[in-house]
Simulated scan of single mutants.
Amino acid sequence: MPLHLPSRRTILCGAGVTLATAATPGTGLAASGTPARVTVDYPGAQWSPASPDNYRTARRPGSDPVDRVVIHVTHEHFDDVLSIFRNPDRKTSAHYVVRSADGHICQCVREKDIAWHAGNPDYDNRSIGIDHEGWTNGPTWFTQEMYASSAALTAAVCARYGIPLDRTHILGHNEVPGAICTDPGANWDWDHYLELVRNARS
C-alpha cells in the first residue's frame, strides 16, 4: 500500500450496488450536517471514505479507461490504513482495503475517481487499487478468507470494465513501472489467487 504523492509512491515498507453512510472525517456528518448517502461500487463493501485530498475526482471510464487491477499489501493494520487514507496530509489512497482475518472489504475511493496508489500517474489513472492487510514477509496474513474475498472483488471489477483475467492486467505493485515497493511479495500466491478470480467469474 505504502504512502503516496501524486507523482510517486513513498514507501512505508510495503453488478449491484449498496448504500452506505458517508461521514465527513471527524464529524460523522456530510457538509450539510446530515448523513450523506453514497453508492458503493461493490455489493457488501463498507464505505470508509478517504480524504478528498488523497485522490483525484474523475469520471472514469469516460475520462480514462480502466484496464488494470493493482494488488497491494499494506504493511499496516487494517484500521490504521483507513486512518491513513482519511488523513489529508498523507496523499495516498486505494479504492479498496481487504481485511486479513475475515476478508471484510472497505471501499475508500469511488471507482470513477483516481486513487493515488501505484506511484505512477499513468497506472493510477487506468487502474483500480486493492490493498490487503498484512506484511509481505508474513505469509499468515494472506488467509483464505482474504484471498477469496479479494478474488471475488477483482473478478467483479474485471467484469465491469472488460479487463482480461491475466497477469498482464492483474498485477502487483512491484510490477508497476517506476515502483520502488516490493509488495505483494514472494509470499503472495498468484496462481491460487488467479484461479479464485477465474472461478469467481465462471
Score class of each variant (00 low, 15 high):
I84H: 07
Y123A: 06
L29W: 01
A151Y: 01
D41T: 06
A45M: 11
D122H: 05
D191G: 03
A45P: 05
P139D: 00
S7A: 11
T182V: 10
P184L: 05
G16P: 09
G119H: 08
A148V: 06
D191K: 05
D67G: 14
D166M: 13
A186C: 04
I11A: 15
D124S: 04
A200T: 04
T143G: 05
V176C: 10
H75E: 10
G119V: 02
W141M: 04
L171N: 08
I71M: 13
G138A: 06
N120S: 10
I105F: 12
Y147G: 02
A31V: 15
T92M: 08
A155P: 02
F85W: 10
A94Q: 08
T136G: 04
A30M: 10
Y55A: 08
H4C: 07
R56A: 09
V73E: 01
Y147T: 00
V40C: 07
S202R: 12
P65A: 06
A58I: 09
V66Y: 15
S127F: 00
D89W: 10
T136K: 02
L12K: 12
I84G: 05
H192E: 05
E76T: 03
F85A: 03
G33W: 11
G134D: 01
T39M: 09
V73W: 03
R110N: 14
I130E: 02
C106D: 13
Q107G: 02
A23E: 15
P88S: 12
D122S: 07
H117T: 04
S63A: 12
W190H: 07
I170G: 00
S7W: 10
V109L: 03
V66N: 05
S32C: 10
V157L: 11
A159Y: 05
N187P: 01
G172Y: 01
L29R: 14
G119Y: 03
H192Q: 05
P164H: 14
R110Q: 13
L165Q: 06
N125V: 00
R37W: 11
T182L: 12
L196H: 01
D124L: 02
A156Y: 04
G138W: 07
A23R: 09
A152C: 06
G16S: 14
R8L: 13
R167V: 03
D80R: 13
I105L: 06
V40L: 08
R99L: 03
A155T: 05
N187H: 08
A58T: 09
A30L: 11
Y42R: 04
D122C: 03
I84L: 13
I180G: 08
D67Y: 00
P25L: 15
P2F: 10
R126C: 10
V70T: 11
L171W: 12
S83Q: 14
D131L: 03
H77E: 11
T18G: 15
S127G: 08
V98N: 00
S32Q: 10
M146L: 14
I114C: 11
P25V: 13
V70Q: 08
A101F: 06
T27S: 15
H117I: 03
